[in-house]
Design a binder for these strands. Structure first.
Lengths: 229, 229, 229, 229
DNA sequence: GATGAATGAGCTTTCATTCAT
DNA sequence: GATGAATGAAAGCTCATTCAT
């Protein structure tokens, strides 16, 4: 009677919070008010106190539900945090998608994408969650994986695909798409994200971000841009 | 971290280890052998297990003192951790020693430096320590600052100075030394450090590191290398 | 015990299943399909997991009803368990059917009976059930009585009657039939059942069982067998 | 820092309760007042409520210590119960030793040993502990093993050794000492212990016990007694 | 001054029971 | 009448902190 090991499965409670609501007019991502309530409460507490510092009691109180209810939606504290990370990465990806329509000259699009990425990455809530994920990853590597896959890895894959299109269009010259994507994304970050992660400096100004992004684009296009004869 | 190591003699009772005299004329910052013993044990345990993961029992055992003794030197677990960071900051500030005797062609030296940096950064112990510092930075921002200054910032400053020398020698063409240094250090890291930090992948092979470093050097020299007419 | 088995139709609402009418003229003791369904599910789970180990969730799932429905039929987990035992007592009382068509020489028949008994007793499911009953007997002595009467006592009575027939046939010489029956049944068990009950050893081989049974028969017939002049 | 898996080991607390007190005038079995206090409290609660029914909070309250103290003496609830079982088996063995000086005619000694065994086995506290052990054995086989080894197995070994001595003295004729010992011990128990275990009947009278023991001795000596020519 | 046994609040998690639908 | 989401009081266990020796 203890075989119910499905990750995120529930013993008692409502149908899976991750199972889609068939027949719903819109594909709502979090398919229950309670589930959303719990995730919102959990977000506040986890970001304020970190993974270890957050207690399920606090989360229940802030979310306005009982502890048992949380456990009927999420199998464990770890699973709850993981679901939260997954949701936030998805929302972030949507934000990034909204930033860029991918229209215009290559240099211009890269500047827009780079700036959009940094606006999202340097959001204090994102920095705080990154810190919490890194701390939790020591104990629960799965959480780190989820964050990495849905965050950095996803972004790199998206950008790598975009690079391939530009190469196909004859606007760039690249052999290793993934390598080049990683290089650009590293260049774009400059020192800003790292400095915030270590609480070395507050959020930089938009101007500072723009300067770093412009430099990154310049370097990238010097190397991979179409060589004019 | 399960050693039962017992340190040597113990005398020289506790003093105001928790109220450091920041402007003291004398260099005896750690005022007793016991205090040092405790701090050394605490460093090991905190870096291995994180702040929340470390228990005062473990620290006492590793330090070779009793729990009561720890509490006669430090008011609380938090105070002990803060004192530890304060000490590390001072030690690292004193550590600003000589550096750099890199000889040879620019490309070769950069490859050597890049590879050496990554070997250090990707050491599992360093990754674990970085995780702990990042986690602690949420609660104790000063810890993050200290680490950043003595680590990434210090490295960037050193490399920036080296770049300036190479420009003076006419081997590179750079306007913004700090910016270029940051770009190179970012390129060199590729995805490896981030992937280990998030427990997404184990330590990469030397070959994989070399490839990333070589690509970084190539990009860097394409942009900043002496343009041959 | 992890089946998600759903039973068929469900109607015929709850009645006074918790206040059984012991002297009811009609034989419909379990007064609804739902009630029976619940009891059948409960039997499986209680015997597999013990009283404390069984959860109402598991019982509801195995029975194919909701938890609320169980509580509309039975006032509490304890009441459900009691009702289960009450039902089993009645069923077993009705089970006093025909028996015994053991043909052949006395020694041979005794060996066959002894071996058959041990095969049943040493079945892991029977051992687990016995454990649950013994554990429950502390809280619900009636449960132990029912089990004892329908099990060991019933077996001893049957065997005692068989011994009487053999004495009447002149093949054995016994004064105290019940005492002799108990002696044989104790001898036959050897250490096997006790060792399994305490989880000291796994199920013994058939050869080991046979040896114990053969020895038991030998001892018994040495004492009670017809003395040849 | 979580490798301290030694069974019964303690993280915080006093030196092992099972380590002998060097220099003590008598080899006291439970070497600390606190340990004894805990065991005595645990005995009351476990026998009253069973293994699952007993809570560590209750045990702590009854024992007059804090929960943490219990865990500094015993690694877990299971380990505490196991220690309790071990101690009680040891005490029981001492009681049995006191019963018998093994002097006199074989039949007489066997009667005395058998009666003494049954007096101990049929003690209500022993029956209750046996029930609790059997219940716990489903979840924690180790507990069942400890009980079986220190109880039935130990008794059988002792008696088997005694039988061997009698055979050496020419007073009995036995091939399989262990088998014969098991047979006698089974015969001696008759139905009494089983009936109490299942709460089928209360403690039998001494006369009833004596009758069963006498019959057991008679059967045993008929089979294994010195054959007079 | 140093010790480590003792404390008890706190942790995550489970589950019998209730009640709005 | 039936459902199962929600509850919240425990459960076993840990650990920062205290204090008698």
């Amino acid at each position: 009677m203890t075989d119910n090991q499905t990750y995120g499965a529930m013993k008692d409670g409502p149908a899976s919070a991750t199972s889609p609501d068939p027949g719903a007019p819109k594909p709502s991502e979090i398919d229950s008010a309670k589930g959303r309530q719990i995730l919102d409460g959990a977000r506040k507490v986890f970001l304020a106190d970190g993974f270890d510092g957050a207690s399920m009691n606090d989360i229940a109180r802030v979310a306005g539900v009982s502890k048992g209810t949380i456990y009927s939606y999420f199998a464990s504290k770890e699973a709850l945090f993981e679901a939260l990370v997954r949701e936030d990465r998805r929302v972030q990806a949507e934000q990034l998608g909204a930033y860029d329509d991918h229209q215009g000259p290559v240099a211009e699009v890269m500047r827009r994408m780079g700036f959009g990425l940094m606006k999202v990455m340097l959001d204090p809530a994102h920095v705080a969650q990154t810190r919490t994920v890194i701390a939790a990853a020591a104990k629960f590597p799965g959480i780190g994986r989820v964050f990495y896959e849905a965050g950095p890895q996803f972004g790199q894959d998206q950008f790598s695909a975009w690079l391939r299109r530009k190469v196909d269009e004859g606007q760039l010259t690249i052999d290793d798409f993934d390598g080049a994507a990683a290089q650009f994304l590293n260049l774009v970050q400059g020192v800003h994200f790292r400095q915030m992660l270590f609480c070395f400096s507050p959020r930089p100004s938009d101007a500072a971000i723009e300067r770093t992004v412009d430099d990154a684009v310049a370097v990238f296009l010097t190397v991979y841009g179409r060589k004019s004869g």
